[in-house]
Design a protein around this nucleic acid. Sequence first.
DNA 1: AGCCAATGTGTTACCGGTAACATGCCGAGA
DNA 2: TCTCGGCATGTTACCGGTAACACATTGGCT
Lengths: 340, 340
Amino acid sequence: MSTPASAPKANIRQVATLAGVSHMTVSRVINDHPSIAPATRERVLEVMRELNYRPNSAARALASRTTRRLGVIVDSVVEYGPGSTLRALEDAAHDAGYTISSIALDRAMTPHDAVESLAAIGLDALCLITPRVDSIDLLREGSSGLPTLVVTPEPEPDMFTVSVDQRGGAELAMRHLTDLGHRDILHVAGPVDWLDARAREEVWREHLTALGVTPRPVVVGDWTSDSGYAAGLALPDDVTAVFAANDPMALGIIHALTERGVRVPDDVSVIGFDDVPDARHFLPPLTTVRQDFRALGRLSVETLLAELEGAAVPHRALIAPELIVRGSTGRVRSRGPEPS
Amino acid sequence: MSTPASAPKANIRQVATLAGVSHMTVSRVINDHPSIAPATRERVLEVMRELNYRPNSAARALASRTTRRLGVIVDSVVEYGPGSTLRALEDAAHDAGYTISSIALDRAMTPHDAVESLAAIGLDALCLITPRVDSIDLLREGSSGLPTLVVTPEPEPDMFTVSVDQRGGAELAMRHLTDLGHRDILHVAGPVDWLDARAREEVWREHLTALGVTPRPVVVGDWTSDSGYAAGLALPDDVTAVFAANDPMALGIIHALTERGVRVPDDVSVIGFDDVPDARHFLPPLTTVRQDFRALGRLSVETLLAELEGAAVPHRALIAPELIVRGSTGRVRSRGPEPS
DNA sequence: AGCCAATGTGTTACCGGTAACATGCCGAGA
DNA sequence: TCTCGGCATGTTACCGGTAACACATTGGCT
C-alpha cells in the first residue's frame, strides 16, 4: 500500500513546527503569497508532502468567508439542454478550482426553496439555468444578495445573462427550410412558458410573415418525443415542412408520419433543434441546429468568476448555434394527389 | 421586497443573547437535542426567524468534523446509465440533507486525481460509479479511508456494491428473443473494459450455448449509435436477431439495416438495453430492457448513509430490470431467397 | 549616514459553530 | 429528610484555518 493506513490528518501548526516556521508562514505558502523566501517555501512544501498535509476546506471557508463553491439551480435537468449545460458548468468550475452544488427545480421544489437550501450550505455565487418565463422574477424575489448569473434566452437589463442565440438558431432553421422552397411550414413548439420555445416560435412566425405567408396555428408540445408523435399524427396534409423546437419532438413527428405512410423528407421535411448525440442516426438522419452547451457552461463560469473578482464583464453574452444538414429535409415537392 | 436588503448575517451568539440563553442552548435547538424545554425552544426558534438566522455550514463542518457531503466519482457521465445514476444520487442525497460533489473521470482525470481532488474539499463518504474493469483497483489504491460504495455490476467481497442486475436483464432479453424462435442471435457488445458489457455478453453466450447453438463472434461497439451503425452495415445475412448492449447502438443498427433494405422486425429483430426516453419512438419503437436508475441512486444513498451511521448493511444489493416489449422484435421468419 | 519602502516572518485575535464537562434544580426512592 | 439521577442549561476550550497588524532586516536613494 502506498498510503499509510489511516493517516492522522496533519494541521497547519504541525507543519509549521516541523518546518521551523510559524503557522502563518505555512498559510502563506498554501495561498501563494508573494513575499515568502524561496528556501522557506521549499522547506514548508517538503514537510507538507511528508505529512501528506491537506488544508481543511471548512476551516478556510470559515476564516475567509468564501467557500469557492457555486450554487446552480437547474430547471428541468432531465431535458438535454439544461442537463448538458449543468455538466459543462461543473467541468468548467472544477477546472477553476471551484465546486458546484446544484439543485433541480423539477419536483416540489420552488425557486425560493432552492435558493434557501443552496444558501444554507454557503455559496460564493449563484447560477440559474432556467428556460422558464417566471423563474427570473422568482429569483429576484428570493434574492440572496449573491452575485448571480442567469442562463436564459432573454436578456435582463439588470442581471448577468448568457445563452445560446435562440433567435439566431431559429433563423438558421427557417432559412434552410425556405431555401429549399418550403412555405407551408408548421411549427411544433415547446411549452409556452419556456423562453427558448417562445424565441423559436417568434422567429418562425416573423420569418414566414416576412415572406408574405400566413403562419398556421402552432402546435404546442412538451419537448418529449411523445408530444412530437401526437403532433405528427395530427399533421395537416398540405404541410410540406415541420420545424420542431427540439430533436426528440422531431423524432416523434417522424415516427408518426412514417406510420401514416408519409415519407420524410420526400413528402415532408422535418428539422429539429439541439443536435442530440443520436440525431444522426434517426431515420432519416435529422437535420437540426446544434447548440454548444459546453461552450455555454464555460462562458457561464468565466462570467461568474470575473464578476466575483470585480472585473467588468458584459451583462449579456451569446453563443452562436450551428446548422447541421442531414437527411430529414429536402426540396419541396408536390405531394401527389391531394385528398378531397 | 420581502427580504431586507443585505441582511447582516446573524450568528449563534447573537441569537443566544436576544433569546436570553447561552449560545450552547441555541446550538442544541439547531440540532434537535432532546433535553431542551419546549418554551425555550420556541423562544429560540422565534428569534432565529426574526434574525433570519442560518447556521454557517463551514463552522459546523469544522467543529463537528463532518461535512454532510458525499463525493461521487463518475466514469463516463455522458453515457445514459452513469449520468442518470448520478442525477438520482443527487436527488436522494439532497432529500437526506446531504450535498453531492461529483467529478467526472472522462478526461485527463485519473481515479487517483479524482479521489485527491474530492478529498481536498472534505467528504463524509465516497461513491464510485464506474463500469470499468480496473477502476476498482485504482480506487483501492488511492483509498482515502472514507466509507465507500461502488456502483458496479460485479460484486466485490470486501466492499459495498450496488447495481442493476445486469445478468438478469440480459437473461430477459435473450429469453424474449429465443421465445420468439430466434437462434441466430448476434450480440453487439459494449467496450470490453466495461463490466456491464461483459455481463451482458456472457449471458448472451451462455444462453445460446445452453440451447446448443454456437454463438457467433461478438461485435464490439463503444455504446454510440455510430458504432451500432457500423455493426449494422456489417451484419451477416443469416442473422435473424440482434441483441444490442444498449439503446443507441440498437438505433444505429436499425439505421444501417434500414439503409440496406433489411426490415426490422420482419427480417431481423433488434433488442436494446436501457430504455432511454426516446426509445419508444425509434422506428420501429424499440424493444429493450429498462434499468431503473432512480431506484439505483436511492439505494446507493441509503446504503452509504446507513454505513455512515454504523448500521449493518448488505454488502451487495441489486435492482431488478424490466423487459419492455415494443415493435423492434418479432417472431423469426425465413428471410426470403438467400443470396449465393 | 540616515531614512524609508519593500521584504520576510511572527503574534494575536477571530471566524461560527460543537464537544465535554460542570452546574443547578427537581422529583423519586431509601 | 436525604440522596441520587436525570433534565435543562451554562462555561470553557477547541476545530483549522485567515486577517490584521507588528516587527526585524535589507537595500536603494538622497
